[in-house]
Write a protein that binds this DNA or RNA. Structure first.
Length: 795
RNA sequence: GGGCAUGUGGCGGAAUUGGUAUACGCGUACGUCUCAGAAGCGUAUCCCGCAAGGGUUGGGAGUUCGAGUCUCCCCAUGCCCACCA
């Protein structure tokens, strides 16, 4: 075979063009074949373009999907754009271009960069969340949620980012700061659309058991986020109130130690108690201050507890009958439990700190260590329950004084954003008819073109200023009406996009039942672990809802999940324009080739690990491909006996490793095989063919070029994955270690199933072993055929 | 404070799940080729030791014929959550 130098710069674009022309990777339903739906979390087309970290997950799904195709499956491996939301809009604002224009430009750039890497995406299924034909169905799902009572208007105070000038969901707040811009979040009362995700809390939790192929750490963070806790609601009578105040506690067993009651500043009973208070002004000042304080002020680490006693009012401990004081304090959250607690300072750290500061009674009711003592133990000073174990009495005390309940930390999903660049919420307000959903046949409600799309900061969306868009007629009474001007949050479009790929051109349905039944669910899903508690919970929620209303046939959207480890910069920091340490894949492709980039990123280390980029190491991947290229010159007609067993092992390991996402060891095994072929200075044609096939998912261009050069029919990428004879995996002769007292003293080579006598005899040939017994008889011999011979000699 | 990970050569990492620790690759050194260099190729490369030998998987203890792997206690690092009663 003629040996020209390996030139990826020439051959890679040539093959990319040809694959596109021939539709090599087109997906089509085929009822006679098994399907494989392999999906990447789709990117926000940011203005910075791709850096080398982005493609890592995409390369992995590319390898998996190519492998599935070669196994004879029909493959759906699509790509699209999550282009609504704050990042896109903030980029547009900063660069003074319309978000639509910026997004179009960024998408073009992203797509060009991706195409250079040679992915097997079926671009005919490309989607874009900002396309009206796409958000038509996002709005449709919202209307369905509304129809089923899962979307409702709320006037509760919500998280507000003063910098982004919009409300935020609980999930968008990190340690009291806006997840996007790090500004401390404030509380603000705004009418908001809210999705009742809490109705699905128990199913989102329990159905994690249906997902054995998800990483345990992701499931665990979802469990923690949903935050189920079993406890009790107990009623405390309060003077001046007709109805008792209900508290939530997980420690009903400590009821006898409850020495005061605390209401959150948001608690509704405060208004009714106001007339009975002798320090009314002080209390309302405290409440007002708490309402204003940012989340960060309220939850700052080591912050002193604050609160005000409700003078002139008292409560009764239902177990002891004792009169106990009532406080309002912001360490009790209005949005969790019942917004009120019974304080047991002896057995709760927060109550203890508060009681110490305010000089309140601290009554021990559980025996154990120093106060505050939060563990279980024997009860004391607890009436009939004294002497019993605290854990064992929890249910009893709950039954006698209250009711068993389950609470969740998960909050309902605040779904309105006061920003321009999002899906309009399809609701119309009529003075006569109230909030009226836009009729399904009028969807999509298009986002109007505007001159000014900057956030107003008033709590109104920029859309409110566009009067000919806002003013409309009521679908019910045909009277004058106004449109909802808030838009949906960034997470809306991504909560169902995986369904659209199955049926991207469908104008009449979200997805046709036939196609959904063929492709759903996603078999392999890959993306960043940072989405564990947002995207992955929201998507599961919508999926379950769509299942409930009969649109979908599966309970869970993603069967198998893998989180991709970050590629950090060579300097150990995150890759970012800010630090000037970004490596652009275009440059790597231009210098070393796409195949070298792909092999390197898969070879770097375990897929889930965060690993620093190292251009020097990438050279090793390129060298490997150069050597493969040169191996083409050693191809001969007859197979090489020395390669039979290594090849079988390599075929098996590469296949197994791809399915298990162990790409690094798959590549090292191919390197081992290449070393063996080079040592043999020859490779048979059949062996060469098999080797090209298993390398093809990782390095699709070079393998295709060499495949065609060997005059094969068609593309290597649609060829059948090679098989091997399992008998070749079993070696007849094995080398095993010989140990004296567990320390290796030498090795012997013998038949795999050799007897213990034979092994011992062979071992005695080794001088170090013979010296090891030195006249003494072994007291014990452990022989594991094919593994180890360990001789125990008493000292 | 809580949860989840992770700790193996100069570096990225491997180890059939309790059986020869350091595969594969990077880097480095020497050699070869060359007028010379690059690339390529070859050899070596965990540590101590001239050697025989000895030691080594963050530290310590334990179980076992045998531990990187299992158990317990520390230490360190990373990520996520955090006044959730």
């Amino acid at each position: 075979m003629a040996q020209e130098a390996y030139n990826p710069q020439e051959l890679e674009p040539r093959w990319q063009k040809r694959w596109a022309e021939e539709g090599t990777y087109r997906s089509a339903e085929d009822a006679t074949k098994e399907k494989a739906y392999v999906l990447d979390m789709f990117p926000y087309p940011s203005g910075e373009g791709l850096h080398v970290g982005h493609p890592k997950g995409y390369i992995a799904t590319d390898v998996v999907s190519r492998h599935a195709r070669m196994q004879g499956k029909t493959v759906l491996h699509p790509m699209g754009w999550d282009a609504f939301g704050l990042p896109a809009e903030n980029f547009a604002l900063k660069n003074k271009v319309h978000p639509r224009v910026a997004v179009e430009k960024n998408i073009a750039r992203f797509k060009e960069q991706l195409q250079k890497i040679g992915f097997d995406y079926d671009w005919s299924r490309e989607i874009n969340t900002t396309d009206p034909s796409y958000y038509h169905w996002t709005q449709w799902i919202f209307l369905k949620l509304y129809e089923h009572g899962l979307a409702f208007r709320s006037e509760e105070p919500i998280n507000w980012c003063p910098s982004c000038k919009t409300g935020l969901a609980n999930e968008d707040v990190e340690q009291g700061r806006c997840e996007r811009c790090d500004t401390p979040v404030e509380k603000k009362v705004l009418p908001q659309w809210v999705l009742k995700i809490t109705d699905y809390a128990d199913r989102l939790l329990h159905d994690l058991e249906l997902l054995p192929k998800w990483p345990e750490h992701i499931k665990e963070s979802q469990r923690n986020w949903i935050g189920r806790s079993e406890g009790a609601e107990i009623d405390f009578a309060v003077s001046g109130l007709e109805k008792p105040v209900t508290v939530f506690t997980t420690r009903a067993d400590t009821l006898f130690g409850a020495t005061y009651l605390v209401l959150a500043p948001e608690h509704p009973a405060l208004a009714m108690l106001a007339p009975h208070l002798s320090n009314r002004a002080e209390v309302s000042a405290y409440v007002a201050q708490a309402a204003q304080a940012s989340e960060i002020d309220r939850t700052a680490e080591g912050r002193e507890k604050t609160g005000v006693r409700l003078e002139g009012v008292s409560s009764t401990n239902p177990a002891t009958g004792a009169q106990i004081p009532v406080y309002v304090a912001d360490y009790v959250l209005g949005s969790y439990g019942t917004g009120a607690i019974m304080a047991v300072p002896a057995h709760d750290e927060r109550d203890f700190a508060f009681a110490q500061k305010f000089g309140l009674l601290i009554k021990r009711v559980v025996e154990g260590g120093e106060l505050p003592y939060v563990d279980d133990g024997a009860l004391v000073d607890s009436g009939d329950y004294s002497g019993k174990e605290s854990a064992a009495t929890r249910a009893e005390i709950t039954a006698r004084y209250g009711r068993a309940v389950v609470k969740y930390k998960l909050r309902d999903w605040v779904f309105s954003r006061q920003r321009y660049w999002g899906e309009p919420i399809p609701i119309i307000y009529c003075e006569k008819c109230g909030a009226v959903p836009v009729p399904y046949e009028d969807l999509p409600v298009r986002l109007p073109e505007v001159e000014h799309y900057e956030p107003t900061g008033t709590g109104e969306s920029p859309l409110a200023a566009i009067s000919d868009w806002v003013n409309t007629t009521c679908p019910k009474c045909k009277g004058a009406a106004k449109r909802e001007t808030n838009t949906m949050p960034q997470w809306a479009g991504s909560s169902w996009y995986y369904l659209r790929y199955m049926d991207p051109q469908n104008e009449h349905e979200l997805v046709s039942g036939k196609r959904e039944k063929y492709w759903a669910p996603v078999d392999v899903y890959v993306g960043g672990a940072e989405h564990a508690t947002r995207h992955l919970i929201y998507a599961r929620f919508w999926h379950k809802f769509l299942y409930d209303i009969g649109i979908l046939s599966t309970k869970e959207p993603f069967t198998e999940l893998h989180s991709v480890g970050l590629i950090i910069a060579e300097d150990g920091r995150k890759m970012s324009k800010r630090f000037g340490n970004v490596v652009n894949p275009d440059d790597i492709v231009a210098e070393y080739g796409a195949d070298a980039l792909r092999v390197y990123e898969m070879f770097m280390g375990p897929f889930e690990n965060a690993i620093a980029w190292n251009t020097q190491s990438l050279v090793g991947a390129r060298r490997f491909l150069d050597r493969v290229w040169r191996l083409a010159g050693m191809v001969q007609e007859e197979d090489v006996p020395a390669l039979a067993s290594p090849l079988a092992k390599t075929i098996q390991k590469v296949g197994d490793d791809i399915r298990a996402f162990r790409f690094n060891t798959a590549i090292s095994q191919m390197m081992i095989f290449l070393n063996a072929a080079e040592d043999a200075k020859a490779i048979g044609k059949g062996e060469w063919r098999a080797f090209l096939k298993i390398l093809a998912p990782f390095a699709p261009h070079i393998t295709e070029e060499l495949w065609y050069a060997s005059l094969e029919e068609g593309s290597v990428h649609t060829a059948a994955w090679p098989t091997f004879d399992p008998a070749l995996l079993v070696e007849d002769e094995v080398e095993i270690a010989v140990q004296i007292n567990g320390k290796t003293r030498g090795t012997i080579t013998l038949a795999r199933d050799a007897s213990e006598e034979a092994a011992l005899a062979a071992a005695k040939e080794i001088p170090a072993i013979a010296a090891g017994f030195a006249g003494r008889a072994p007291s014990r011999v452990i022989y594991v055929p094919g593994r180890i011979l360990n001789i125990v000699v008493e000292k």
